[in-house]
Lab assay of single mutants.
Amino acid sequence: DVEPGKFYKGVVTRIEKYGASINLNEQVRGLLRPRDMISLRLENLNVGDEIIVQAIDVRPEKREIDFKYIP
């Protein structure tokens, strides 16, 4: 289970102007929005990149997770 405040290694699977889709595994994925990137710009991400993200909002009833990137 993903817990708010914990850090996870994820893989960038899609990049859109509203954010990047991050997969932690086949069943768990979430969104990294541009506003939640401290020192990383969306255009510097590539599909397949592995990054460390922090879960900031977990809504299991909607199967949604928001991530934050902290270098």
Score class of each variant (00 low, 15 high):
1 D>T: 14
1 D>F: 14
2 V>S: 02
3 E>C: 11
4 P>D: 05
4 P>Q: 11
4 P>S: 10
5 G>V: 04
5 G>P: 04
5 G>L: 07
6 K>C: 14
6 K>T: 06
6 K>E: 06
6 K>A: 07
7 F>N: 04
7 F>P: 04
7 F>Y: 10
7 F>A: 04
7 F>M: 06
8 Y>N: 00
8 Y>S: 00
8 Y>Q: 00
9 K>R: 14
9 K>H: 09
10 G>M: 07
10 G>H: 00
11 V>R: 11
12 V>C: 05
15 I>P: 00
15 I>K: 02
16 E>P: 01
16 E>L: 13
17 K>P: 15
19 G>H: 06
20 A>T: 03
22 I>S: 02
22 I>W: 06
23 N>H: 13
24 L>T: 02
25 N>E: 05
26 E>N: 14
26 E>H: 13
27 Q>T: 14
27 Q>W: 15
29 R>Y: 12
29 R>V: 14
30 G>N: 02
31 L>P: 02
32 L>Y: 02
32 L>D: 01
32 L>M: 05
33 R>L: 05
33 R>V: 04
34 P>C: 10
34 P>G: 08
35 R>D: 08
35 R>A: 12
37 M>F: 05
39 S>H: 14
39 S>K: 12
40 L>G: 06
40 L>A: 07
41 R>I: 10
42 L>K: 03
42 L>I: 11
42 L>R: 02
44 N>D: 15
45 L>Q: 00
45 L>F: 04
47 V>Y: 03
47 V>S: 01
48 G>F: 02
48 G>V: 03
49 D>W: 07
49 D>N: 03
49 D>K: 02
49 D>P: 00
51 I>P: 00
51 I>N: 00
52 I>G: 01
53 V>G: 00
53 V>C: 06
53 V>H: 00
54 Q>A: 05
55 A>L: 07
55 A>W: 05
55 A>K: 00
56 I>L: 12
56 I>C: 08
56 I>K: 11
56 I>T: 07
56 I>H: 05
56 I>V: 10
58 V>I: 11
58 V>N: 07
59 R>T: 06
60 P>T: 10
61 E>Y: 08
63 R>N: 15
63 R>Y: 12
64 E>Y: 12
64 E>N: 06
64 E>H: 10
64 E>S: 08
64 E>I: 12
64 E>K: 07
65 I>C: 07
65 I>L: 07
65 I>R: 02
66 D>N: 11
66 D>P: 02
66 D>W: 14
67 F>T: 02
67 F>W: 07
68 K>M: 13
68 K>N: 04
68 K>E: 03
69 Y>S: 03
70 I>L: 10
71 P>M: 10
71 P>E: 07
71 P>H: 08
